[in-house]
Design a protein around this nucleic acid. Structure first.
Lengths: 345, 345
DNA sequence: CCTCGGATGTGTGACGTTACACATCCGTCG
DNA sequence: CGACGGATGTGTAACGTCACACATCCGAGG
C-alpha cells in the first residue's frame, strides 16, 4: 500500500480511502491512485484488514455431511446468499458426532465472524451450551428450541400435514410413514417427532384411525434405511396404499423397495417425500415432495447472522425464530403427472 | 494475549510459545500459562496471526455448483483432507460462467493461501491466464492441460475404456454413449472428448464397428439431458443393448427414459455411468459406474497445494500431473447383481 | 572455580490496514 | 474583504501476533 501511495504521490490513508470507496476523494486523485494500484498489481491484505477492523468478512457454515443432498443444496443456497453480501463461507463438516458438534460450538470455525450451524446430534437438552458463546451464532434445523440464539427452521408439522393431506386428496386411506424414531428423552423435538405429529393430525382431521403398524422407524435417513423399512412393512403384510417418507433420501429407498416388490407407483402405492432435493425430479417415477423453503432459510439465516455480527455482542434484538414457507410439490409418485401443484403456507 | 501474559507472570512471547507448542518452555511455566489461558478464555486472533505469518491457514475450493452430486462429493473429500491437515476451506461456487471463472482465477478467493479450482468453461486455450498468478493454484479436472500449474485429474480414457470393456464382457455388442459434445475448437480436451476416445478404443480393440448413430450428444450433463438423448436414441430405432453414460447424473436420466419406454434393465439394455456418486447405489436398478478415485484426487490435490504454499512463489518442483486410480463398480444395471467387481488400474 | 552451552525466558519491532485528530484549500456568504 | 465550512488530504498510532536478537540460569566438564 505504501508503494501505491508513493507512486500516486498521496498518503497511504488516501489509498485506503480509494480502495474502500470513501467519499471526499477528488476524482482526479482517485484515478491516479487507481492507476498506481493497477500498475503495481496491489491487492489489499485481508488479514491486516481483519486485524484492524475486527471482522474477517467470512462466516462459517457447519453441516453434518455434504454428501447428503439436502445439506449440499443448503450449502449451495447459503453460499449464494453470502456471496450476494460479499461474504466468504468456510464450510465445516461435523459428521454425526456429538462431541464434534460440541467442539464446533465451543470454538466456532476459525477465522470467521459468526457461524451458521445445523446440528444433528445436539438437542434441546444441550441448550445450556449456547449461553456463553463468544461469537454470533444462528442455528439451522430443528434440534434445539428455545435457546438464546436466533434460529431458522421449517414448518415441519404443517409441511408433514400438507403432505398427508395431499395423499388423502388422492383418495389414499392406508398411509404409512417411514422415518419415525423411537421416543427420545423428554423435550426432544426432532424433525421425525414433528413430522409424525403432522401426519397424525392430518389423519385425525380426516377421521381416519391411527395404526401403529403404519408408523415405521428408519435411521439414519439414508436411502437404504428407507428401503429396509419398506421391505419390513411389506413383509408384515400391512394393507397400505401410500407412503410418506420423512425425507427424499428415504423416499428414494422406498421407491426402490416398492419397485423390487412389484408394486406399481402410484397406482398401487403413492409415495411422497420431504426436502425437494433436485434429484427427486429424476427418479422413476418422479418424486412428490415438500419444498421446505431452503432458499428462504439460507437468505434469512445469513441476514440474521449479518445483523448479529453488526450489532456486537449482547446488543441487538432478542432471539428470533423464523419458519420458512413451504409448499407441496406434486409429481408422478403421487399420481399428479405434470402439475407442480402448490399448497402455500 | 497480554492479559494472559500478565496473569501468568510471563512475557508475551512465552504465551505465544505455549500456544504454538514451541520447545524450550518449562513444563511448570507451560502449565501456568495454560491455566491463565483457560481462566481468561483466551483464543488467538487468527487475523493477527495471518498478518504476522503471511498465512491464513485457509485454502479456497472453487467448483461450478454444489448441487451437482459429483462436486458435492468432491467438496466433501476436499474438506476432509484439509481438516486432517488443520486447514479451513472457503468454498466458492463459480457456476458455468466463463467470466466468473476468469475472475476467480485472477483474484483467487479472498483470505486464502491458495486455491483448488475445478473449472468448467476455461480450456486449454486459456492456459495463458495461469502464467502470472499471485498465489498457489492446483487445478482439478480435465479442462486445461499443459499449463504451468499442478493438475490432478482422473483416467478419463482408461476409465471409459474399462467401462465399455465391462459391457463387452457381459456380451453386449451394440453399445451407445450418451454425453458426447460436438467437436470443439482445436486442442479442446474435454472429459467428453476423452471418454469417447476410450469408448472407441474399446470397440476397436474388440473388433466392433463404430456407428455414429450410437454416439449421442447431451449437454449439460444433467439427468434430463440423459433422458432426452435416450428418448431420441430410441425414437431413431437404433439397435442398442447397452448405454455408457458419461456421468452418473446422465445415467440416472438414461435409466428413467429406458424405464418409460418399457426396456428392461439390464436384460434388454445394460447401463453404466461414470463418477460413482453415492446416489447410484439406490437407483432402481442400482447403477454400475466407474469410481474415478475422488478421495485420492482430493488428498493429492490438497497435498500438492500445501507443498506449493510451503515452498513459496517460483520455488518448488516443476508442474506435476497426477492421475488418480480408478475402478469399475459393477452393480445391477449391468447385470452384475451383487459383485462390487473391481478393475483396478 | 571457571567456562561453556543448552534450556528457558524476555523486550522490541514490524506485518498491512484503518481510525482519529488534525491540516489545508477554496468558494461562498454576510 | 474576512471568516466560515465543506471538501480533500495527511501523519500517527494502534489492532494481536510472532521472529529476532538478546538475556539469564543452571549443570557439567576441565
Amino acid at each position: 500500500m505504501r508503494d501505491v501511495a508513493l507512486r500516486a504521490r498521496v498518503s497511504n490513508k488516501t489509498v485506503s480511502n480509494v480502495v474502500n470507496d470513501h467519499p471526499h476523494v477528488h476524482p482526479a486523485t482517485r484515478a491516479r491512485v487507481q492507476q498506481a494500484i493497477d500498475e503495481l498489481g496491489y491487492r489489499p491484505n485481508m488479514s491486516a484488514r481483519g486485524l484492524r477492523s475486527g471482522r474477517t468478512g467470512v462466516i462459517g457454515l457447519a453441516v453434518p455431511d455434504l454428501r447428503q443432498p439436502y445439506f449440499a443444496e443448503l450449502a449451495d443456497a447459503v453460499l449464494a446468499a453470502a456471496e450476494r453480501r460479499g461474504l466468504g463461507v468456510i464450510v465445516g463438516q461435523v459428521g454425526a458426532d456429538r462431541d464434534h458438534e460440541i467442539a464446533v460450538l465451543a470454538n466456532g470455525l476459525r477465522q470467521t465472524d459468526g457461524l451458521l450451524f445445523s446440528p444433528q446430534r445436539l438437542g434441546t437438552e444441550d441448550r445450556g451450551l449456547l449461553d456463553h458463546l463468544r461469537y454470533p451464532l444462528v442455528l439451522l434445523g430443528e434440534r434445539i428450541f428455545g435457546g438464546p440464539t436466533d434460529h431458522v427452521t421449517m414448518h415441519n408439522i404443517e409441511g408433514a400435514r400438507a403432505a398427508v393431506d395431499h395423499l388423502l386428496a388422492q383418495g389414499r386411506r392406508r398411509i404409512a410413514v417411514v422415518g419415525a424414531h423411537p421416543d427420545g428423552r423428554t423435550g426432544q423435538l426432532r424433525p421425525s417427532d414433528l413430522r409424525i405429529r403432522g401426519y397424525r393430525e392430518a389423519l385425525e382431521a380426516a377421521g381416519l384411525p391411527l395404526d401403529p403398524r403404519l408408523e415405521r422407524t428408519a435411521a439414519p435417513w439414508h436411502p437404504e434405511d428407507g428401503a429396509d423399512a419398506t421391505r419390513e412393512l411389506l413383509a408384515d403384510d400391512v394393507d397400505v396404499d401410500a407412503v410418506f417418507a420423512f425425507n427424499d433420501a428415504l423416499a428414494i429407498g422406498v421407491l426402490r423397495a416398492l419397485g423390487e416388490a412389484g408394486r406399481r407407483i402410484p397406482e398401487d402405492v403413492a409415495v411422497i417425500g420431504f426436502d425437494d432435493i433436485s434429484n427427486g425430479r429424476f427418479t422413476l417415477p418422479s418424486l412428490s415432495t415438500v419444498d421446505p423453503g431452503r432458499d428462504e432459510i439460507a437468505e434469512v439465516a445469513v441476514d440474521m447472522l449479518v445483523e448479529r455480527i453488526g450489532s456486537g455482542p449482547g446488543a441487538g434484538p432478542p432471539p428470533r425464530l423464523h419458519k420458512a414457507s413451504f409448499r407441496v410439490v406434486a409429481r408422478e409418485s403421487t399420481g399428479a403427472a405434470l402439475a407442480e401443484g402448490a399448497s402455500a403456507w
